Amino acid sequence: MYESSVAEAPVNREPLHAPVAHLVRGGVIEGIHYGSVVVLGADGSVDLQIGDIEAAFYPRSALKPVQAVAMLRTGLPLDGELLALTAASHSGEERHLAGTRRILELAGLAEDQLRNVTDLPFDPVVREDWVRGGRLPSRLAQNCSGKHAAMLYTARLNDWSLDDYLNPAHSLQQAIAETVEALTGQRIAHVTVDGCGAPLFSVSLHGLARAAARIVTAAPGTPEAMVADAMREHPEMASGSGRDVSALMRAVPGLLTKDGFEGVQVAALPDGRAVAVKIADGADRARVPVAAAALARCGVDPAALAEFATAPLLGGGEVVGSIQPARALAPLTHPTYT
């Protein structure tokens, strides 16, 4: 069981990011992505830190597993696929839409009561089919609709008001904030609005990794363990078909991982080893190779991470280079640029 004490909020400052990924074209480093990385050991100690892991930052959707834990703590009765969807940044596939409708149905609510923004499906192929079919952006298709449906369900079960469930002062959001602080082990530095319209809480990268570790090591049957189990057992529901986070959970047994906009990823293994990544410029192309390198430094077999270790760079339709972790992150496997 983790300590109940909560440290002071992280400092809001310009993060001291460091090189974490290189864009290599034809043997020459053409570009550098800066960022920060933390690797935690099973005992919670910091085994590796690159950049600034203590500055205040926004985890974006990487915080959704924590939000899901908070909703379970306040009475949300979901499990399995629907709980995975609660913590999802989904692709907008029919299974995701059907699952969100099911949560609303269980709550006795309608789609027009959702307060997330309208959007097209996140997955490019699904989005193209959606547009080709003449369908307009909707709240249901937006990638956070499962979380919002679960928020409404939680509010309904507690007899809390529904129209203002996204207000940071709402009882639901206060309960979520308390869980964020309990699991990250630190006070929230700032509160703003996420892309979907929900409150977004600023913590540190270190705190985000600590929260993931606490979720995967929680006792069976607890809200934390229920969220971890649901996401690991239904990774496509927690993301989508063909998404890198679902493929990563399939490739590494017992791994829990969640991505977030602006180059964020968090991951944790059943024994509490955990990593968290923030790409400074928000580039998604660097997120996966950096996260894979961090997991390798965490002790995951590099063979299981091979397909995630680099991202190909094309020139004239041919692979002419790659995006790969910087030397400070993967010094034993980094190539020589000649």
Rank of each mutant, 00 (worst) to 15 (best):
290 V>D: 00
222 T>G: 03
208 L>A: 03
257 T>S: 14
282 G>S: 08
289 P>C: 13
220 P>L: 09
217 T>L: 14
263 G>I: 01
223 P>F: 12
303 A>C: 00
269 L>Q: 05
214 R>K: 06
312 P>E: 11
329 L>Y: 13
293 A>V: 09
255 L>Q: 12
203 V>D: 00
255 L>I: 12
255 L>T: 10
244 D>C: 02
269 L>W: 00
315 G>I: 03
244 D>G: 00
240 G>M: 02
266 V>Q: 09
318 E>H: 12
325 P>V: 12
203 V>T: 08
308 F>R: 11
237 M>H: 14
230 A>V: 08
209 A>S: 10
207 G>M: 08
259 D>W: 02
283 A>F: 02
234 H>F: 15
223 P>W: 10
209 A>Q: 13
278 K>H: 13
245 V>L: 13
225 A>C: 06
201 F>V: 00
216 V>Y: 00
242 G>M: 07
263 G>H: 08
304 A>S: 14
301 D>A: 08
268 A>Y: 04
323 I>Y: 05
309 A>R: 15
229 D>Q: 12
260 G>Y: 09
273 R>D: 11
264 V>H: 15
229 D>I: 10
272 G>E: 06
317 G>A: 05
246 S>D: 09
213 A>W: 01
219 A>H: 10
309 A>N: 07
330 A>P: 00
205 L>S: 09
233 E>G: 11
260 G>S: 03
227 V>G: 01
258 K>Q: 13
280 A>C: 10
273 R>T: 06
300 V>N: 11
307 E>G: 01
318 E>V: 12
222 T>L: 08
216 V>G: 02
239 S>W: 10
319 V>Y: 01
261 F>K: 04
270 P>F: 02
218 A>K: 01
268 A>S: 14
330 A>Y: 00
254 G>R: 13
277 V>C: 07
236 E>A: 07
306 A>K: 11
285 R>I: 14
280 A>S: 15
330 A>L: 11
285 R>K: 12
329 L>R: 03
292 A>M: 04
311 A>M: 11
202 S>V: 02
277 V>G: 08
232 R>H: 09
329 L>E: 05
273 R>L: 04
310 T>C: 02
247 A>P: 07
321 G>Y: 01
306 A>S: 15
249 M>L: 15
267 A>H: 02
209 A>K: 14
259 D>N: 09
325 P>D: 06
221 G>W: 03
330 A>G: 03
257 T>L: 05
245 V>A: 14
289 P>A: 14
226 M>R: 15
257 T>D: 06
322 S>K: 05
307 E>H: 05
226 M>K: 13
